[in-house]
Structure formats: structure tokens, C-alpha cells
Amino acid sequence: MSNNKNIFWDRMQNLDRRYIYIVVALAIIIPLLIPFNSKTYITEPVENLYKKVDSFTEREDRAILMCFMHDASTMPELFPMEVSILRHCFERNIKVFTICFLPTAAPLIDYAINTAKEVGGFDVQSGVDYCNFGYKPYALFLPILLGMGEDIAEAVETDSEGRKVENLEIMKNLKNYNELNLVIDFSASASVQTWITYARVKFGANIGAGITAVMAAENYPFLQTGQLVGMLGGLKGAAEYEKLVDVFASNNVVFSKEIVKETWIPITDKNIPYQFKTARIGMNAQSVAHIMIIVFIILGNIGYFVSRKSKNKELG
């Protein structure tokens, strides 16, 4: 019996990694095909960012800038965040600008705006309610970042459609970071720290971050020191923001902690379009996959200790 046990653990130790891939794939596919209503708890960094965006509701003299610093490879994590924030802005009449410094990010901006606009059925107009500055060469990242502290229309002369920014209706009452008071950087790199270093330190702009989970741990010190007003970390952050928009912005309700605690939105609800709950559906699969990984780690460790014990016994 003891020998059989050792053979089992030895086999587990030398298990072909492709079996593990299959199990992880199933752990993701099954919850996606058969979604269940897991709860989404709201964390403070997400709540703070939501509240900051929401504080600009219907204000003519306030706007937010969304900087898309990523390509399609990190879309699963960042795209739901971008759609949720755009949706929030469109729901609450918040002026929103978008910009990118990577060529491959340019189509993602259009895709995000069109998804939020078309799926949500918003009657918003480019140049009036929102403005896409479009792709600007990376070499101009710093000049534009610093230039916007003085005059946005001078730093970014034209938008993605080639129109003079200074002539756009959305620019009424907007001059620099005093009005464009919140910059949210979506990235899989440390670009958010560039915004903090220059736009925050020099001009006092509020900076928010929508980042991949890989980058989250690195940015927590900036959150803790208040240099980031809020942060969406990975798919979990996106899922939380999706929920906040569903609970408050889409119902025209002001944020309240009590309502968040009491409200539970089932993701199987057919009234919520799929594009507006992608992250929450993904988090179902994420939770199951994490449980699988934890089980594998425990099994691997048990196998390691059992094998080591039996080897020690053999050696005497």
C-alpha cells in the first residue's frame, strides 16, 4: 500500500505539463459556458477612481483624459476597463478625451469608443461630448504631456480626424490640467509612473491607473502615498468598475457604500449586454482557475515531501 502511494506521488511529480494545460483550459472553458452568479466585491482603489470620475458629472469645466498605452496583447484585462469608464462618462455627461502613443493602440481607441457608444445606445458626438486625439508618435509623449500643462490645444494641435483641437466645442472652458483634471493611463508598462513624475509633480494633475495585474504590485506604493487617486488592477479591477457603472451610473444614482454592499447584480441577467459584463464573466473562470492552481500547488508540495521522506527512508 505504502509503495503504491509512493508510485502515485512520483507520477504526480513527473506529470506531463500538457495534462495540466488541459485541466486549466477546462477550468476556464466550463465556467465561461455555464456562468454562475459570483459576487464582485468593490475594493477601495476602484471605488476612489469611480468617485473621482463621477465627481465630474455634467461639469463643463472638467474633463478626463484616457491614455491607451497598450496593444491588443493585453486587451482581455484592459479593454473592459476602458469600455466601462467610457460608458460611465457617456452615462453621466462627462467630457472625455482619448490619446495613444503606440501605433497599435490607435484602433483599440476606436473599438472601445464604438463598443461603449453602440452597445450602450448613447447619443454622443465626437468633438462635442468626447474627443479622440488619436495616435501621436512616442517621441512626443513627453512634449505633449508637459505641453498640456500649459495649453492642451497647443500641445495637441489636431484630433484623430484632423480637426483643429482649439476649434472643437468640447474645448470650451478647458485649457490645461486645471480642467483636464484626471488622467487615466491604461498600460501594461510603467508609463503611469511617467504621468505621476511629470503631470502630477509639475502640474498637480490627478492620475488614475488601469493596469495589468502584473504591474499592480509595482504601483501600490504610489496608491498608498496618494499619488494615484485610484487604480484598476487587472481583470478584477475591470469587473469591479463594471459593477459600479451598472449599479450607479446607469441608474443615475450617486455612489454610496451601503448601496454597493446591498446590491447584487447577477451576471446571468440578460438585460446587461455581454460587452458590459465581459470582465465579470471572466472573473468566474479566473476564480475556478485559481482554485485549480492552488490545488496543483498543494498536490505538488505533498508529492515533494512524500518523495523526499521515502528517499530518506531508503538511505537509512
Binding site: 483550459a25 476556464i28 472553458i29 459556458l33 495585474a213 502584473v214 487587472g234 464573466i281 482557475a289
Partner: peptide
Amino acid sequence: YTVMARISLLIGRIQFLLGECLGLIK
């Protein structure tokens, strides 16, 4: 966090294959 990020990327691709391509996720 890194593990979470990698799984998220896989989820994104599988959501694309099952949802947008095969229409199995609604």
C-alpha cells in the same frame, strides 16, 4: 498577480473563441 494576469489573457482568448467565433457565450 502575474499568475492572475496570465490566466486573464487566456480567458480573453477563450472568450473570443467561444463567444465571438462560436456564439456560445451570451
